[in-house]
Design a protein around this nucleic acid. Structure first.
Lengths: 209, 209
DNA sequence: TAGATTTTGGAGTGTATATTCCAAAAAAAC
DNA sequence: GTTTTTTTGGAATATACACTCCAAAATCTA
């Protein structure tokens, strides 16, 4: 039999299997980003990923499991790209480069879609506690990445010791999320720009002279 | 016949009819706030409002129409209570009273649910353009209410002329939305507190001496 | 009070959608 | 090369859910 306890037998996936599996996740992620989790049917995902129902349920026990994989996929995408900007925050220019990166994404996509993690969060927190846990971790990780960036600035003499990088990081993440939501609702980059710029201005007030 | 054009005949509602209709809207609003629009079935609403299917469709053409009414109901609730705090912003204490009001709601509800408008926004913007329009107006109205409050502070000599109340209002609304989302995800009031306090601190930097 | 209109009950309908099942093809293991 | 395991096709199932329908009760109107 299997190894003890109720750990489900982990089938091994072949190269082909791995590839099919991730194709499903990517397709699901895109659809769920565009139209939400509830509105994305398994059939939608099948069509987009060019697979059959049996493949769907061969790789995922149920829709919920797929959703968790989508969360983890989006998490690594978002954290990955952001961390590239945040890990070397050696100047205010670098901070503004991060800002520009965020703003430009929104402009490129006509302010549609909002934040890939934020939208999942809002849709799932209250109705899927596994998802809530995952998303909470994702946001902690994201917050951490910003914290590290600001601490870096502090340690490199860009910010004076009045600055509390932990609080500023959380406030920055909140401004980012709220700015993205408003930008999405209004189809206008102004809110994300103003939200981030205002926060950054505030951070600048801690600039070391 | 009816008055010209394609304006649908507006049936007149009796007192009882009015009451039933609003009972439906309130029930739907609560359910949709707790579990989202997609997850709230017409049957859920029927049960909560103690009505039959025929009543549902007597008062609303379809679910979408009910959703629009829910948006408008939540808008007046939110804007109403907030405006009470914002219309007389004659001091920073008053600003903090608004902050406390928001934070206390979250604490009272164990940080569940998030913002009644923000959650509708996130779920509906991309899939229901009528809803998107409505919600966009709601947020403009909300933003306006904050603007007026900050302008009031400016006009009453609390803020100096460097302060841009319009930008600050938008940034504040963004911080509020993002803070509520993070608080909801984490089930912890810290994010909304830090987000608002940081923004208010920034506003304080424009305090007239 | 009679007639018209509104409100309500509740069963019925049709479709969308998650999930299952059987068996075959493909690939891996030995 | 044979056996075992993984991957795939596609039809079938079962249920949840938005919406319809008809007739009766309640309430207005004149």
């Amino acid at each position: 039999m299997n190894n003890s306890l109720n750990i489900p037998k982990k089938q091994k996936l072949t190269k082909k299997g791995q590839e099919t599996r991730s194709r499903i996740i990517v397709a699901a992620a895109e659809l769920m980003y565009e139209q939400g989790v509830a509105r994305t049917t398994i059939e939608d995902v099948q069509n987009k990923a060019k697979i059959s129902a049996s493949q769907m349920y061969h790789y995922f026990k149920e829709k919920k499991e797929l959703v968790l994989e989508v969360i983890s996929y989006q998490t690594s995408r978002v954290i990955g790209t952001h961390t590239r900007y945040l890990s070397n925050l050696d100047s205010f220019e670098a901070l503004y480069a991060w800002r520009d990166f965020i703003v430009n994404i929104q402009i490129k996509r006509n302010c549609e879609g909002g934040c890939p993690l934020g939208s999942l969060a809002s849709e799932l927190v209250e109705i899927n506690s596994d998802a809530q846990q995952e998303i909470m971790s994702s946001f902690f990780e994201w917050e951490d990445s910003i914290k590290k960036g600001l601490r870096y600035m502090l340690n490199h003499g860009e910010l004076n010791s009045d600055a509390d990088p932990d609080k500023l990081a959380l406030a920055l993440l909140a401004a980012l999320q709220g700015g993205l939501l408003l930008t999405q609702v209004r189809r206008d980059p102004t809110p994300i720009i103003v939200a981030l710029d205002t926060m950054i201005e505030h951070i600048i007030s801690f600039k070391k002279v």
